[in-house]
Amino acid sequence: MKAASRYFLGNGKHIPCFAHTIHLVVDDSVKEIASFCSILDKVKKIVMHFKHSPALMDELRKAQADEGIPEGCIKTLQQSVDTRWNSCLEMLVSFLSLANKVAIILIKRSEKVKGLPEMLSTDELSTCKDFCSLLNPFKDATEKISGEKYVTVSMVIPLISLLLKKMQIAKVESADGILAQDSLHKQLEKRCKPLELNKVLVKSSFLDPRFKKMYISPIGVQEATKDILQELITFTEEKRISDDENSDDQGDSLEKAHNRSIVKVDGSENRELKMYLSLPQTSWESNPIMFWSSYKAAMPGLSKLALRYLTTPGSSVPSERLASAIKCVVCDSRSRMTDTHITERVFLISSNSKYWS
């Protein structure tokens, strides 16, 4: 992927998938702690045993129904998938929410059935709770960076900074939890800190009105400002040449001639950058694309440059999601489908649900 990016886009344009980076951080941290791996194996065995036993699952549902929980709100155990680290977290969360009922069911069944999986001890349950509290921010970051209907590339550097802060202030009680906290922090430093030097990510965050200079190092701000000014100068020069070629001085109105003269002498690229930095930062929920669309007239060069950077995806999840959609609509038994039919079916499945109502 990196070689392909260099070949088609040039040097320094490759952006690693941040969702995959998070996966590596969590996966490496979990593997470092052997005792927690054994706890995970015990949880997997319990969940798998319940999943393969309709009688146990019926007892689990009945135990919740007896407490007055309505049918639609009854919880179930979730199995983890090796290729998705967050499925491991979901398994732990579902297991902890039903741990008391699972323990009672296993104790009752152990009197009649041999070979049942061993229930976790109190200390092991405490370790699981610590891991869930530590991994929740990573799950949140993964979900945020995996979106496809909003800007994600500018979130990478802010999310790294926020995750590091979360790991510093997290409160854990178990010994394994403390080891995990330290390991996650080290893996973040190792795998994510280099991303803070990626010029595309730095400039994307800088040009996002929600973040600007907030999460970028002082050196990064200086380099980003220098690069952006240079790109603005190049854009302005290209625009001037285009305007000169297309303009008719004889037919221009006085207003047009005046405005063109201002562009030539004003140094507008520096003025635009100063105007942008003087504006207040927007909230996380705001839309940076809408922001730049509204300021297109006031900052034409910077607006065009910002949209060029902000439309870059921060992860490969949207493309992988589309690949999964293609696999669903183009099954192996449909060998005579043409490329046109495939394109139409993929378009239909990727269309927003509101258009089907």
Results as ranks from 00 to 15, higher is better:
S133H: 12
S133R: 13
L135V: 06
N136M: 12
P137S: 07
D140W: 10
A141E: 02
T142D: 04
E143A: 08
S146C: 06
G147P: 05
G147T: 06
E148G: 12
E148L: 01
K149Q: 11
M155W: 00
M155F: 01
I157L: 06
I157R: 04
I157K: 04
L159I: 11
L159V: 11
L159S: 14
L159N: 08
L159Y: 03
S161D: 06
L162G: 02
L163N: 06
L163K: 05
L164Y: 06
K165M: 07
M167Q: 04
Q168G: 04
Q168K: 14
A170H: 03
E173W: 00
E173C: 11
E173Y: 00
E173G: 09
S174T: 11
S174W: 01
A175K: 12
A175H: 09
D176L: 05
D176F: 05
G177W: 07
I178M: 08
A180F: 15
A180L: 06
A180W: 12
D182V: 09
L184T: 05
H185S: 10
Q187C: 02
Q187K: 09
Q187S: 01
C192A: 13
K193A: 10
K193Q: 11
P194R: 11
P194F: 15
L195K: 09
L195G: 08
E196S: 12
E196H: 10
N198E: 08
K199A: 11
K199R: 09
V200I: 15
V200S: 03
L201Y: 01
L201M: 05
K203V: 15
K203E: 15
S204A: 15
S205C: 15
F206N: 01
R210G: 00
K212F: 15
K213W: 14
M214V: 09
M214Y: 13
